[in-house]
Amino acid sequence: MKEITILSGKGGTGKTSITAALASIARDAVFCDNDVDAADLHLILSPTVREEHVFSGGWTASIDVTSCIDCGICTDHCRFDAIHRNSFNNLEINPFKCEGCRLCERICPVQAISSVRSNNNSWFVSDTRFGTLVHAKMGPGEENSGKLVSEVRKRARELAKEYNASYVINDGPPGIGCAAISSLSGTGMVLMVIEPSVSGLHDSRRLVELIDTFSIPTFALINKYDIHPEISEEIKLFLKEKSIPLLGEIPFDKSMVEAMVEGKTIVEFDDKLEISTILKAVWKKLEDFNVL
């Protein structure tokens, strides 16, 4: 079983649309949405949920005003500026700023502070027309997205093993921070989706630097290459310099958006389109790499 992760650094370069297209091409794979923060893959794969799990996030503290003696020790110790005075002049904890370290709870001389774990995050195992999808929904403003990514990936790998599937295909998160790191760690290969813009190139450079620290085999795709052919050329030079094979160049086509509006992958939308042909060839190359 091989794990493939689709990443881009910059957001909105087409990761999810391309992952969905690969889902309709790949036989015998388990799919996993690693963008737990703003998960979109399910909008195309229209899953029927089979299992639902709660993922406990961090702790959040709160102060019981009736026992609080207003000594201010908690405010002095909180490094996240989470404790302030509210309009009734009582000390209060801002749940969005609270890091869940529970230091305030431990040092409160009158035990007026207690913490609860958030249960705002869920993850699911679902059936789709292409196979099994493992995905998640984070509560707004939650932390620990990296942990949730590890959790869904772990389940996707277990299921792939159970079904004897050949691949796990991960739709990755944007950026290079904790969620991207969790989605890279231990994966078998990376497919980068790069958009030919100064930001797209800049962001993929930073992503490649991150991938280098993991030494994972990496491949690239240029999406909407004809929006700016000169920058596409610059991207190719960069890929060559980094010895990253370029598997395909996808032209700009409004059909991508039209397919999304209809809830279809581009391949389902129109099998004869140039994009569909290119993506089929890209998948073939990824498979061939795995055979070698």
Binding site: G11, G12, D37, A38, F96, K97, M138, P140, G141, E142, E143, S145, P173, P174, G175, G177
Partner: peptide
């Protein structure tokens, strides 16, 4: 702000 809806976004808009 960065994309998403988790803690980095909350920090930015706070």
């Amino acid at each position: 702000a960065p994309p998403g809806t988790s803690c980095p976004v909350v920090e930015t808009v706070a």
